[in-house]
Amino acid sequence: MSASVTDGYARTPSSRSLRIRLRLGVPARVASRSAALLALVCVWELLSRTGAVNPLFLPPFSVVIADVYHGFATGYLVQHVVASLGRAVPGLFFALLVGVPLGLALEASRSLNTFIGPVVEVLRNTSALALLPVFTLMLGIGETSKIAMVFYAALWPILLGTMNGLRGVDPLWIKAGRSMGLSGGKLFVKIVIPASLPSIFTGIRLAAAAGLLVLVAAEMVGSRAGLGYVINAAQLDFDLPGMYAAILVLSVVGYVTNAALVLVETHFLRWKTS
């Protein structure tokens, strides 16, 4: 057993960085991560206050954040955040519902892939924004067309993430599973799916970002609610603090969405980072 004693646990970078993080503690971590953000805010405030940039076009950060507070206090911004999320979440959800099974099917069946593959290739390279008028014509200017836009934009990253994940499954894992007596459905559920999860999660995060992007554009063009509408409407009213306030909220929504997805991801993919 002498050899077994000498080959210790492999040192991974993650275990080392974990130790550093533990030593610094949570407050230090938060401080180091928000320093650059704080600097950005300061630069913004200074540029506007000193007149280096016309404060009419770029109101100071303090004014904008006061507007954000006001918007939430009166419930005005809350209502529009809810409207936007009410379109983004169902759109993303449907994209997941269609994208993952479609990706599995396309990867599983070669004939289906050769048949539908080119269609997928063309559609995925057609900008969702270019299709905005088409969606509006077909589905009206109501909620359905907005949700459909998000769905369309979110579908492709999820589909590609799924297909990519399946392609990355090590044949050796399949072989090992077969040698243990697994076959067909069990092999798929117990080995293929868990092995593809990292790539599927990456697809979901890209999809959320793409969905939000398209949603804002759709709301700007034809809607009476949502953050995209607020940004556009405020600009037309020359209420620039209101416009920046909506942009700020949009950034936070995007950031929080991504952070939430990362949290879910790390829970399911503990084995990659722990």
Partner: peptide
């Protein structure tokens, strides 16, 4: 997890 182990 496997990635925390050496080849041996």
């Amino acid at each position: 997890y496997p990635h925390q182990l050496s080849g041996g």
